[in-house]
Amino acid sequence: MSGGRLGAVALSVFRESVRDRVFYNLLLFAVLLVGAAVLVGQMTAGQDIKIIKDLGLAATSAFGLFIAVFIGIGLVWKELERHSVYSLLAKPVRRTELVLGKYLGLAFTLLVNVAVMAAVLYVVLACMWWISPENIRASWESPALDPALLVAFLLIYVQLLLVTAIALFFSTFSSPMLSAVLTFGFYVIGHFNADLKHFETVIASAPLVWLTRALYYLLPNLAPFDVTAPVVHGQAVSPGYVAMTIGYGAVYVAFLLAAGAHIFARRDFK
């Protein structure tokens, strides 16, 4: 494993994202937020700041999801489809390094994306704070420039890292179409996981209960990464919870990358 080679692969992924105009989504994000801020500012009193926070976090998550899935499934697949992997792997690059480097590259792309979105949200919130009279500010559940928002952004980022790892894992052995479907499927399941767990309250068969419970623990559980509700309502999110959730994400990502790299390292590139 060489840092130089990982870095070179990661950098090429980042450069590709830049050249493929991935970051244009930031523009859309900014327009969406500013537009929403102007609109809700005229419609509701007091709730506007919460709505902007909700929207900002939801959009960060949604835009990030699309980047994670659509670039994630292409990371490995495009190399195979266009045969660029042939000349690449003739270089002294281990296949494992290739997979990890690709992952790191997209992780960095997502980091930049989420960081800029966070900055944009804070700027919009600062503007709203500035133009709101004192009595309106007093009605807000949480301060406009609440540092707790960063916790929400951090968990969204870790969630995106997990989704990216899922996409990359599937793309090491299946077609991009299937990978996309599976990744989105896992994303949806990951958010309805809690419902899965509670299926046992409506099903009677013991093996089925056992099965849903096993699925609940084995499938990636994404719902805990979403702390939008407590954050926008000004409720504290405990550091222990954040640490455990991040730890869970990190271990799951490690598992997916190890398994994905293992599969990729044994593939024939016909």
């Binding site: 090429s12 450069r15 590709e16 050249r19 493929d20 045969h83 660029s84 042939y86 000349s87």
Partner: peptide, 12 residues
């Protein structure tokens, strides 16, 4: 190694 009908990266 020169692969048959080599193809590289669009963006580079």
């Amino acid at each position: 190694y020169l692969p048959e009908n080599p193809y590289f990266y669009d963006h580079l």
